[in-house]
């Protein structure tokens, strides 16, 4: 068990991605750089309000070659996709309490980048998201979401 967003937690996620044998079958060739901007809000105890976590995920030929916390946001040339939203939403998704597709559709997690690519590789995207949801063994030492609010069950 590792604390959400910790180095060990990210390593666990990377390992899950790389242990999925079907991912390379769905992945396009080449390097795809994904940036998760997890924005501190008043609810999450893991990301201070007015601060953000910058997670960088690199997928190369369907394999995770980088998954780490960055010091700041990457430049626009250094990423292909950005997912951003309140920390509490990302945490609810990680805890299996919030459906990630709903979070994206409803705009709680903003998605930017080549949307056509996301649609063309919907199966890949879904597999990676599914790994994030529920399968990551997460420790919640400062409390588990939802933080006083109602959780929206993941599908």
């Amino acid at each position: 068990m590792a604390e959400v967003f910790s180095t060990a937690w990210l390593a666990q996620w990377a390992e899950l991605i790389n242990s999925d044998e079907s991912l390379p079958d769905h992945a396009p060739p080449g390097l795809w750089r994904i940036y998760l901007r997890i924005e501190g809000d008043s609810a999450s105890p893991y990301v201070p309000q007015d601060e953000s976590l910058h997670l960088l995920l690199h997928l190369e030929d369907g394999r995770c070659t980088k998954l780490e916390r960055g010091a700041g946001p990457p430049g626009p040339r250094d990423l292909d996709f950005r997912f951003s939203g309140p920390a509490a939403v990302f945490e609810q998704v990680a805890a299996g309490q919030r459906d990630p597709v709903d979070a994206g559709l409803e705009g709680d997690i903003k998605i930017a980048g080549d949307m056509g690519f996301l649609l063309r590789h919907a199966e890949l995207v879904k597999e990676i998201v599914d790994l994030y949801v529920g399968r990551l063994e997460t420790d919640w030492p400062k409390g588990k979401p939802p933080y006083g609010g109602e959780a929206v069950s993941a599908a």
Partner: peptide, 24 residues
């Protein structure tokens, strides 16, 4: 709820194919 995402997907980006769209 999803108008922003739809605008980004269908308007303000390169066009997607209808087959890719329905598959997604």
């Amino acid at each position: 709820r999803y108008v922003d995402l739809m605008l980004e997907t269908f308007m303000y980006g390169p066009p997607v194919g209808i087959n890719d769209l329905t598959k997604a």
